[in-house]
Design a protein around this nucleic acid. Structure first.
Lengths: 216, 216, 216, 216
DNA sequence: GATGAATGAGACTTCATTCAT
DNA sequence: GATGAATGAAGTCTCATTCAT
């Protein structure tokens, strides 16, 4: 309960109550962190791009790291929101009769999120390796929750006879790999190529289902 | 020819002709770069860990970036070596009757490499996003070569009727995602877990083959 | 016009709008550069003498060279100011009936300047040989302008029959050599000797006039 | 006596007994010191240009400063040689009936020297201001000797009635200024211009003689 | 709340010099 | 005699952060 409320807090509070300057700072940091990495970015550079004085940054964020967290924390939360908040966003719930349909819905939903949060997402995956606290936080609060939810889901579809008898974690890993593989290539490595998203997702889900689906 | 010789040069020259101190420097840099990232690592820290004077680093590597490249360049080369040097390493060649067998051989081969070059590999994937020249170099010299080789391979097995009629790049993406997904989780995210590699690879290849294999 | 305004800008802006610390830095740099030369002077030494943190220097002057230029540029400008700004400073204009009078006025005027800007002048002549851009700037923007003005002046007095028929540039070189010779020995080589400036200038001008003056 | 022998030593020893490497080092240092100044020149740069190892420099010259002195000391000596060694080089002796002839001979003689020792001469005048010992050495051992010799000369011609009644030091300063003025412009400031040396010297001497010569 | 001058620690790098080979 | 790897002090410059205005 409390945790979910924490999450809600983060989700609802972020992007609100922000001074215009604060907004500018966040935007500038977002852009530069994503491009050059946290360590290689100087606060003076952020200040310049944000059009504020150097001191102003530290009025709103006690330290440079604080600024990083102000970007990463809400992004983490939003990234996994659909998997955690069961009553709010029903898009990904077990309403779907088929694992296939669930996958499609999930990919579309998260792809939409990615599209609007590319920079923040980049920062998230680029910085996590360098900040043990972030890594820990990610594992404990994020990865495991999503993983558990997925376990339930996969088991659910297994019982329905839609997924073959492989260890659940293997199924999850395979599914996740295929999905992330597509999303990363699509949005990070070759974002400027022309993509027929619908068809690509279709094929991806198709291969996944072939890979782990039970013969009907 | 020349390109292959370049590659050979890099592969054979590296790790040789190195002063003892130089070796120490490389090892120290390798370790710290991997853990904290290039930008967050100071040359004084490297010097201390290597047990040399800070000036000594710059006798061997003109700049800090030079030191980074001295680690990354050979790693890139070795990483893709089996895909590029057709006559030397036959492990991955089309001698394999089945795509399945090829996949297994490749995974085992590259997994062995990863095991011995984890730190360098981490640095490679962690730093590429922050260094446009590296990114470019990676795309042009590395990714495309490997990709082309894979195209030939996949087409070869397609003609043999072992792979279903999906766009070649989709097949490659799917295969690569599944394989990298396994390797990353296995070696980067959860390296300390106990893994039955043989079985995991077995299952991974199995799922891939289900996903894209033609029904016999 | 524009050029004259540039010059005016430099002349009027310099020494104004300066922080107290900035002023201190300039003074310290001035003194040490003059004594030890630009290259042999360290920024830490300047900081210490100026009583500021070393970082403060670089807040005001992007580089050490910048600091040098902040000293040299205005000095160059002021040095030749009377020769360039015809309407402002009439001291050296052709109001003088005789070349002799013009010379005396000029020497006195520039000697006063030198007295108050010895260090900067030293730096100017000591550093120009080592900085090609300065040399170029000096030649193009300074030397030529002054030279042209002198050509007009000498021609003017030639037409008046006060100067014998030698090539104008030879007359200028001779005059300049004699004047600079006096000023350098007086202020640079033997500044601590006792000088009767009025008499020395009298004799110098006398010799110059004998050297190039027409017999009346 | 001893002093003259010292001088002789320097003159005769220099350029002899030099290893090939040593010669190379001297040449390299000469060139770079002249261009960039002593302080801004690194020993490694000299080593590179000389084609020797860094250590080799310090085998021959205990310190970098030693290397500088090895260039400057003989140059100083040679520069004033004709004024000091009365019996060896008679070119500039009082054999000349007229001050005018003496001047011409002297200018030609020293101009020849300058032409062959430009770099060393540049270093001499560029570095003296920054090295108090050099300045002292120059004043005591060089300037004064030459000055005294000149005093005798000027007095000699004064007595002959060839020079007007001005203080001897004024005459010397005026003569020296005119001569150096010519030589500096000719060889340092505008060396690439086309010069009719004979005519220029003619005019220069002419002006000097007008300036200080007695009417016959 | 916002500014930007000031800071001092520490970043990368260069340097003159030494010394084992 | 020559080398060049090694050094550590010192060089220039950047940085995150503070604080008086």
């Amino acid at each position: 309960m409390t945790e979910q409320n924490d999450m809600l807090d983060i989700l609802l509070n972020s992007d609100e109550k922000l001074t215009e300057k604060q907004q500018k700072i966040l935007e500038a940091a977002l852009e530069i962190f994503a491009k050059k990495g946290y360590s290689a970015t100087s606060t003076s550079e952020i200040a310049k791009k944000a059009g504020v004085a150097e001191g102003t940054i530290f009025r709103h964020y006690k330290t440079k790291k604080d600024l990083l967290l102000s970007i990463i924390a809400p992004t983490m939360a939003k990234l996994i929101a659909p998997f955690v908040m069961r009553d709010i966003n029903k898009v990904l719930n077990t309403k779907h009769e088929k694992y296939e349909d669930f996958l499609k819905a999930m990919i579309l939903n998260r792809q939409a999120f990615l599209r609007e949060n590319m920079s923040a997402f980049r920062i998230l995956i680029q910085e996590i390796p360098f900040h043990p606290e972030l890594k820990e936080q990610f594992k404990e609060h994020i990865a495991e929750k999503v993983f558990h939810r997925f376990q339930h889901l996969v088991n659910f579809y297994k019982e329905k006879g839609q997924i073959i008898e492989l260890p659940t974690e293997v199924v999850i890993r395979f599914t996740a790999s295929s999905v992330f593989g597509y999303l990363l290539i699509r949005h990070i490595f070759l974002p400027e190529a022309k993509w027929d998203d619908e068809k690509e997702i279709e094929m991806t889900v198709h291969m996944i289902m072939n890979g782990i689906g039970a013969q009907e």
